[in-house]
Amino acid sequence: MFDSQVINMLLEGIRDTLYMTIFSTVIAYIFGLPLGICLKVTSKDGLKPNKIIYGILDVFCNIVRSIPFLILLILLIPFTRFVVGKSYGSTATIVPLVVCAAPYIARMVESSLNEVDPGVIEAAKSMGASNLDIVFHVMLVEARTSLIVGATITTGNILGYSAMSGTVGGGGLGDIAVRYGYYRWQTDIMIITVILLIILFQIIQNVGMKIAGNLDRRK
């Protein structure tokens, strides 16, 4: 049905999409995970309540999350150019994806950590655990199922956003869908890319949930 050129293009699209999604998720977690831990620790019922730090982080997360991704993508062009040297292509897309996802991840992490039984934290304190011990050996361990579920949802979102960046020349399957489907009226290629995105999404979702389920010892 398609010639090898189109197939190669689609394969490259898959590769670029996965590249963007995976790298963005990992880098976003490098920022988002500590941010989420800070939110939890400094919150009113946290290990070290601090109204000022919590207030600043809280507002920062809300501001970034309230900017629509497409606008963020454009707003960040100068910053993206500063970080990776150009403002288009798969690598450049990682920058706005990370900026967009990190506060979202922070919130997911915060809510996962909120699920940890306060009684278990109290028990750890009664054994003489320090706050660092509690974060790393109690909270992150007890919340791991919820954290992995959160990571799965986040990865799915980033996959969706990476496709959106196709509108500004971001690369990957989204880019192909926009170029062929929207500008050239080649509906068949657009549908194929959409199906490929659905399949990728399903794989991420299923693998993530499976890992989370296998690691859960509460049942």
Binding site: D117, G119, V120, E122, A123, S126, M127, V138, V141, E142, R144, T145, L215, D216, R217, R218
Partner: peptide
């Protein structure tokens, strides 16, 4: 000074 609780407060993800 060890302590035990009504709801046991064990780490549910550890054996």
């Amino acid at each position: 000074i060890a302590m035990i609780f009504q709801s046991f407060n064990l780490l549910m993800q550890k054996n």
